[in-house]
Nucleic acid binder design. Sequence first.
DNA 1: GATAGGGCCTCCAGTCGCTGGAAGGTCAAG
DNA 2: CTTGACCTTCCAGCGACTGGAGGCCCTATC
Lengths: 130, 130
Amino acid sequence: MNIGDVAQKAGLPPKTIRYYEDIGLITPLRDTNGYRVFRESDLHKLAFLGRARTLGFTIEDCRTLLALYEDDTRASADVKDLAQAHLAKIEDKITQLESMRDTLSNLVKSCAGDNRPDCPILSDLATGQH
Amino acid sequence: MNIGDVAQKAGLPPKTIRYYEDIGLITPLRDTNGYRVFRESDLHKLAFLGRARTLGFTIEDCRTLLALYEDDTRASADVKDLAQAHLAKIEDKITQLESMRDTLSNLVKSCAGDNRPDCPILSDLATGQH
DNA sequence: GATAGGGCCTCCAGTCGCTGGAAGGTCAAG
DNA sequence: CTTGACCTTCCAGCGACTGGAGGCCCTATC
C-alpha cells in the first residue's frame, strides 16, 4: 500500500502519516523508488492512532498507548490511569469553557446589537464589572 | 510604571506584555534607559485584553474589540456579532469535548484497572468497536 | 568604590500537531 | 511523448505565548 491508499483507509491525511513516521510512531517499509510501503500492521496502528487522537489523547499519550497495546504483559491499570488522567483534563476544559460560555451568553443577551455605540460587552471588558 | 508593576496590576506576565507590544496591541513609551514606561491607558488596555483573553477571544478578536472600544461611532451590533461568533465556537468545542468525555468515561468504567492485560480501552482503540 | 541582587532589555528557540508550499522524482494512461 | 496524478524531501508557518541566554541598569550595602 502506498501512502494515498493508507491515508484513505485510515482516514488521516498523508501529511499526518509522514509526520507520524517522522516522530517515530510508525516505520513503514520503503520501495526501491523511495515510496513508503505500508503493511497491514502499519494501517492498523494508524487507525489506532486516529481513534486515540479523536478521543483527544496527546501524541505522547498515543505513543504510550501504542506501546501498552503491543505489550501483552501490560497491566490494564496503566491504561486506565492514562485514560483517567486524560478524562480529568477534558473535564477541566469543559468546565472552563462552560464558564466562558455562561459569561459570554449573558453579555450577548444584554447587548442591543443595533447601530448605537452603547455596548455592555465592551463595558464589561473595560471595567471587569458585570 | 515599569513592566513589573503593570504586570502585577493587569495580572499578565511581563513576557506576555512584551509580546502584546511586539504584535502592536499596545505601544508603551520608553524611558531614556530603554525601559518601557506604561501610562494608565496602557494598563487599562492590558486589563481589557486580559479579560477578553479570559473569555477565550483570539488575539485578532482582541485587536478588533480594542478598536471597537476606542471608536465612539461603533455599532454595538459589530461587537455583538463578534461575541456571538465566538460563543458559537465555544459551544462547538464543548460539544466535541463532551463527546470525548462520554466515550472516555464509558471506556474507563469498563476497564478493570488491575494487573491483568485485558483492557477494553485498548480493544476499542484497536478495533473502533465498542 | 566595589559588589550583590533584582529588574529590565533583546533575541532566539521551543511548545503542539500538524499544514501549506516549493522543487523535484515516478508512474500509468492516452 | 506528454499529461496529470502520485510520491519524495525540506522548510516555514500557525497561535499565543514561554524559557533561556547574554547583557545593561538601578539601588543598597559594605
